[in-house]
Design a protein around this nucleic acid. Structure first.
Lengths: 138, 138
DNA sequence: CTAATTGCAAAAGATTTGCACGAAC
DNA sequence: GTTCGTGCAAATCTTTTGCAATTAG
């Protein structure tokens, strides 16, 4: 059963077949699908679901804070349902594969005032870059 | 005079009016323009320069390692000419403004083996998120 | 002179939008 | 019944590509 779905129900999210399918497709760890991949998988379970609905739904999940948008070097954004466990990303520079990694014991110091340029700092995102074992072999 | 341009000359980069203008437009600190913004500014100095050439040139500068691609939450990528001084970014969640920030005294521990999933880790990118003074006022 | 670069225009890829119809509550 | 969500198709925005004309070295 989908954790994400549970949480959404709990928040009184209006439920439809399409939204359920999107939430189900997204659920899990190390899941970082593009909108198009979400649509492709959703179609497997609900053939008539449209891309527009997938985009709408993803946008809403991001607004609700239940899904994170991951911007990569590539064109399409990826969506990460693992929003409630703080984590960072390890990205393969060659193929774009992404893994979740969890903050090391090292609490990242917050930015010193002298480096804030008057900004209010709300968070930090850490992305490690490297080559995945698959690409290293090939 | 443009630092970037100097470096490119030194590397024997084939020079054209278009390339010079792109390098000039990019030079500086806290510069994070989109391809379209680069084009707009380049046109100011060389009216007939085409978007395709701007894209070509930016792509090449990235390949040469002289310019960094910054992926944001927004659609268009941004280009950062400050590639030779290691730094991170502070991004306004509201308007997208970006400032360069320099690593705090805190050396970010490298990822432990148990969190590498077999990847070779080559670098890390840190992005602070917040609200810029401008947006905070509005 | 020769190989590399440019501009154009068209194509491709990703995402958004307007609107009539249909479904959730 | 009312409000909100959906599908479609067209629009928009960003980036890439093919190719003939041009230019740097």
């Amino acid at each position: 059963m989908s954790d994400l779905l549970e949480r959404l129900r709990g928040r009184g999210w209006r439920m439809t077949a399409q939204r359920r399918v999107v939430a189900e497709v997204l659920d899990g760890e190390h899941v970082h699908l593009t909108a198009d991949e979400v649509h492709a998988r959703a179609v497997g379970r609900l053939p008539e679901i449209s891309r527009a609905t997938v985009y709408n739904t993803l946008g809403e999940l991001v607004t609700l804070g239940e899904v994170l948008e991951v911007s990569t070097d590539r064109r399409a954004k990826r969506y990460d349902p693992n929003a409630h466990q703080p984590h960072h990303h390890l990205v393969c520079a060659r193929c774009g594969a992404i893994r979740d990694v969890h903050p090391t014991g090292n609490p990242l110091t917050s930015l010193p005032d002298s480096e804030r340029f008057g900004f209010t700092v709300e968070g930090v995102e850490v992305t490690y870059k490297g080559i995945c074992p698959n690409c290293a072999t090939a």
